[in-house]
């Protein structure tokens, strides 16, 4: 009788470990996939930018600086050597594109141009895709990290050496620092 009980308990624990282990493996692969997805979206943006620049530069001769900023940020992002550098360059690129879109509002001819409108919509969509793919990456990392920290699954995570993954964060000094407020207290 006791033999049976022990057998059943061991079986249940074994099944629990198996399902947790497989769950962690699945999540870890999804994290990898989500990271790859971010790069797919970034590539998409690199490819779209030259088209947009070509389409608008005829109209925007007096906005050279705005256009150059976009081109410069793009090539910096492509040439980045590590994740940190790339993150910084990408944030610059997002900013430069925002400025470009804002300036484009001043050119009614651009708003009448089918091709420009289409490219602008594609870039807006791509910006959202980038933001959402990063968000999705962080969502899965959160699930994975919580999964390996919660008791009793953390024992299994330790046993098989599952380590927490890092969140994607914006790597721009000025966006990281909390704004300094002088309250005038002496």
């Amino acid at each position: 009788m006791t033999g049976w009980i022990i057998l059943i308990v061991v079986l249940i624990i074994g099944l629990y470990i198996l399902s947790k282990y497989n769950g962690f493996i699945v999540l870890r692969n999804r994290i990898k996939n989500a990271w790859a997805q971010i790069n797919v979206e970034l590539k998409r943006r690199y490819d779209l930018i030259p088209n947009l620049i070509n389409a608008v530069k005829g109209y925007m001769q007096y906005e050279k600086e705005v256009l150059e900023n976009v081109v410069k940020a793009r090539s910096q992002a492509i040439e980045a050597k590590n994740v940190k550098e790339q993150g910084e360059a990408e944030t610059q690129l997002t900013k430069a594109l925002k400025t470009l879109f804002a300036v484009m509002e001043n050119y009614p001819e651009l708003k009448a141009n089918e091709n420009v409108l289409r490219l602008q919509e594609e870039l807006t969509a791509t910006e959202n895709r980038i933001a959402f793919s990063r968000q999705f990456y962080n969502d899965i990392v959160m699930r994975y990290n919580a999964g390996i920290q919660i008791f009793p699954a953390n024992i299994i995570a330790n046993m098989f050496n599952f380590k927490g993954e890092e969140y994607f964060e914006i790597e721009l000094p000025e966006e990281r620092e909390a704004p300094k407020v002088d309250l005038g207290l002496r």
Partner: peptide, 13 residues
């Protein structure tokens, strides 16, 4: 196109 784009963005999210 916009409807399709918005939908695809949300499949990613």
């Amino acid at each position: 196109p916009v409807l399709h784009n918005v939908t695809e963005e949300l499949t990613i999210a």
